[in-house]
């Protein structure tokens, strides 16, 4: 399952909920969700800790728009919209954690 998260983890529990409900899979951070993937944010350690079980992606255009294109934490793969489409195609279902 592809999990799509669009909320900052410092504002909402959306990403945490997603992590708790899954035992693995892929997470794509879009919109305000991309803040989770930035270096030095308070959620960084949590996201690092699950990188063995989850493959984490972040949408480049959303990172760039927020001035964080060059501050992505290690282990997160940055994708563009075409990469977003490929992820959707790769997994049988996707869940948007709104």
């Amino acid at each position: 399952m592809l999990n799509i998260v669009n909320k900052s983890p410092l504002d909402r529990n959306t990403l945490q909920s997603c992590l708790d409900a899954n035992t693995g899979g892929a997470i794509l951070l879009i919109e305000d969700g991309v803040f989770a993937a930035t270096r030095g944010n308070a959620f960084e350690a949590k996201l690092k800790a699950v990188q063995g079980t989850f493959k984490v992606y972040a949408l480049g255009p959303d990172l760039d728009a927020r001035g964080f294109g060059d501050r992505v934490m290690d282990g997160v793969t940055v994708v563009d919209y075409a990469g977003f489409v490929d992820l959707v195609a790769e997994f049988k279902t996707c869940q948007s954690w709104l």
């Binding site: 399952m1 909920s17 708790d20 409900a21 899954n22 035992t23 049988k92 279902t93 996707c94 869940q95 948007s96 954690w97 709104l98």
Partner: peptide, 18 residues
Amino acid sequence: SRAAIGKLMEEQDVLLSF
């Protein structure tokens, strides 16, 4: 449990959230 719900989610064809 939340994990059990997550497992059920994996079995779906379509997930809708609003």
